[in-house]
């Protein structure tokens, strides 16, 4: 018998979720109905419900996107990353950028380099990124997201819910000019 076949159903589900989270991937209930799993959707959900009450699986978390609900382990994927990854997975790009900017402005606080969205896990091509920024600026929902241009020409974003314009400007110049050695 394969080693993982000896595990309980709950342990097998947890193992899969933890492993996928390590690689930055969610698991859906649908995946638990496909090979190598043999659960029905009802059985998978029943196991997950039981796991939610089991101390051994307290790391298994649900997160909701616009298109689906996803499972991850916050042992191997941080909650911050999971919130970001929902948008990446569903390619909800406008919300992805806006939420990243608000998070940066409120938590660190810092300005967000537009260029950062060119890299993983966002990997936005410049043309697409420009389009996303245009939509943010045109949307009533994201009026707090501001674009700021450094004296070097580099573009940054911030949320004026959390950062005043003068501070944002100072942070941009610190980053681009003063600390650039």
């Amino acid at each position: 018998m394969a080693k993982d076949q000896a595990l309980t159903p709950k342990a097998r589900i947890a193992q899969r979720i933890r492993s996928q989270s390590t690689h930055g991937q969610f698991v859906t209930v649908k995946e638990l109905t496909e090979a190598p799993f043999t659960f029905t959707e009802e059985a998978a959900l029943a196991n997950l419900e039981a796991m939610a009450a089991d101390e051994k699986y307290m790391d298994i978390q649900w997160i909701s996107g616009q298109k689906a609900k996803y499972l991850y382990s916050n042992q191997t994927m941080t909650d911050n990353y999971a919130r970001l990854h929902v948008h990446v997975k569903e390619q909800n790009l406008v919300a992805m950028v806006a939420e990243a900017v608000r998070h940066d402005s409120s938590v660190y606080p810092r300005v967000t380099s537009v260029k950062a969205f060119r890299y993983s896990p966002y990997n936005l091509e410049q043309e697409l990124l420009d389009d996303v920024l245009k939509k943010i600026q045109e949307s009533d929902e994201f009026q707090d997201i501001q674009v700021i241009t450094a004296s070097t020409g580099a573009k940054y974003l911030y949320s004026n819910q959390f950062l005043e314009p003068r501070r944002a400007n100072a942070l941009v110049e610190l980053r681009e000019v003063v600390d650039d050695e």
Binding site: T22, T78, Y81, D179
Partner: peptide, 21 residues
């Protein structure tokens, strides 16, 4: 310097620049 599954925080001026790709 970029978001990673294992990292609660990231910073694009971090010198921990390694990332997939």
């Amino acid at each position: 310097s970029t978001p990673m599954p294992w990292a609660e925080y990231h910073h694009n001026r971090s010198r921990w620049t390694a990332r997939p790709g």
